[in-house]
């Protein structure tokens, strides 16, 4: 997947809670790093207490990626903190920036607070869908989610991303069914599908371009 083809320098990942935004954001940043030495990952997830981009800060630093998140101990705080630097990274034309937005309506609301930066930037907004997550299984539910989050975040959704999976047990059939549903949502909302995210180990090709993912947010065992 060549992310330069999107002709943008700000990649915004939105979606429902647990749809896989953080994993996608990390993978996208690593992919972009191949093309530029200035890549930042902006963690504006104020929803999730665990498994966040900021938890991978040290690892991503070794990959040459800057993670913009609340500093030091504040990153563990159960508080909706948005760092002041974020606006700068979003509007800096020398940077490729990936924004990891928190899930659901509450997560998307944060985008509205940085609207002034987003509006002045050439951005692309991706809406991540995992059709095997609760409240995201039907065309109707997904379409409503897209509309609601677009409204709350005050942004237009440019692309859908099919990220159907159940973790390690994901089958090709699961992904195929996911593509079918996301494809129909795409037709209904007239929003194109950017790609289907597939774990590295899975050999799959379907109706959309494939983005191969490495899993970075792993359990301790």
């Amino acid at each position: 997947m060549n992310f330069l083809n999107f002709e943008t320098r700000l990649f915004v990942y939105m979606g429902m809670f647990g749809s896989g935004k953080t994993e996608l954001a990390i993978n996208t940043a690593i992919e972009l790093r191949k093309h530029s030495s200035h890549v930042a990952l902006v963690d504006i997830d104020v929803i999730s207490p665990y498994f966040r981009s900021r938890d991978e800060r040290d690892f991503l630093k070794t990959k040459g990626i800057e993670v913009i998140a609340p500093p030091g101990v504040l990153s563990h705080a159960d508080l909706p903190i948005i760092t002041a630097q974020m606006g700068g990274y979003i509007s800096n034309p020398n940077y490729f920036t990936v924004a990891d937005v928190g899930g659901n309506e509450d997560g998307a609301t944060v985008l509205g607070s940085v609207k002034q930066f987003l509006d002045s930037t050439d951005k692309t907004v991706f809406f991540v869908v995992n059709t095997l997550r609760p409240f995201s299984t039907t065309i109707d539910e997904i379409a409503k989610n897209v509309q609601k989050l677009s409204e709350m975040g005050k942004v237009k959704i440019d692309y859908l991303v099919c990220n159907t999976n159940i973790g390690v047990e994901t089958s090709n059939e699961d992904i195929q069914k996911g593509e079918e549903i996301v494809g129909k949502v795409s037709e209904y909302l007239e929003i194109p599908v950017a790609f289907t995210a597939v774990k590295n180990e899975i050999n799959y090709s379907g109706k959309f371009p494939i983005f191969r993912l490495k899993r970075y947010l792993v359990n301790l065992w």
Partner: peptide, 14 residues
């Protein structure tokens, strides 16, 4: 059919 659930969500549904 298996789905992907958070522990908290799964307990609620169950």
């Amino acid at each position: 059919m298996k789905m992907l659930f958070k522990g908290t969500e799964a307990i609620a549904e169950a």
